[in-house]
Structures are given as structure tokens and as C-alpha cells.
């Protein structure tokens, strides 16, 4: 009985923390002023927020008497796919040269997304190729 009460309180606290994280991530998406900077806020903070919401759902299901592990599957899927989609969006930002200056590649490399064989890209200001 008392364990049930503790799980319900923990679920409520997890809900509050998760919704706060989601809201902070979306405010960051709206307020930052650079496409690369804007990429940081929802892809990390928002993912943690959804993870906390799923943890709250697991705690509520355990408090009601039928614990389930479905939420772990959603959490694993989200944590695995959020960096991949963020990587693709960053590649779009570098490719369209909408970010101010991409970070300089090491030594005499170039960004592999900029030198595709079938497309001639304009030389960026920070591309280190001679």
C-alpha cells in the first residue's frame, strides 16, 4: 500500500520534470538564432523529457498493479533514432550552407557532404580544400 503511494508520487514528479524538459526544449527551438544552435535544444532536451514521461507511465502502470515493459521499447527506439535524425538535419544545414561557418575539418579533409560527385557545391568560406 505505501509502496503504491510512493510510486504514484514518483510518477507525478516524473511527469512534471518531463513536461518541463519538453517545454524548455521547444523554447530553445524557438529562441535560438542559428540553425546549428537550434538543433541542440529539441533533439537532446526533448528526448530526455519524453523519456521521463515514459518513466512516469511505467511507474503508474506498476502502481496500478500490472507492470509493463512496453515503455522501455519506445524509450530505446527514441534514444537510438534521435541522434540519427539530428545528424541528418545537421548534414542538411551544412549542405545548404545555412549555418554561419561549419567547423574546420581536420588537416586537409573536406566535409564529405559537400563534395558529392554528382553535384558541384559553391566553395564555403571555411572549407579547407585548396
Amino acid at each position: 500500500m505505501t509502496l503504491q503511494i510512493v510510486a504514484t508520487y514518483a510518477a507525478a514528479v516524473c511527469l512534471l520534470i518531463g513536461s518541463a524538459f519538453v517545454l524548455i526544449g521547444v523554447i530553445g527551438l524557438l529562441k535560438f538564432n542559428d540553425p546549428m544552435t537550434r538543433l541542440h535544444a529539441p533533439t537532446k532536451v526533448g528526448t530526455i523529457g519524453i523519456g521521463m514521461l515514459l518513466l512516469a507511465a511505467m511507474l503508474v502502470a506498476a502502481a496500478e498493479g500490472d507492470p509493463s515493459a512496453h515503455e522501455l521499447l519506445i524509450m530505446a527506439f527514441l534514444f537510438a533514432t534521435a541522434p540519427v535524425s539530428a545528424h541528418f538535419i545537421a548534414k542538411v544545414a551544412i549542405h545548404q550552407q545555412s549555418c554561419e561557418a561549419p567547423p574546420p575539418p581536420p588537416r586537409d579533409d573536406t566535409w564529405s557532404t559537400l563534395n558529392s560527385p554528382d553535384r558541384k557545391m559553391a566553395e564555403g568560406p571555411a572549407s579547407g580544400a585548396p
Partner: peptide, 9 residues
């Protein structure tokens, strides 16, 4: 992408 992730929540 953020819309879809918040819709999951």
C-alpha cells in the same frame, strides 16, 4: 521532428 516527438509524449 519535434512536433512528432511531442505528439508521442
Amino acid at each position: 521532428d519535434t512536433l512528432v516527438i511531442n505528439a508521442i509524449g
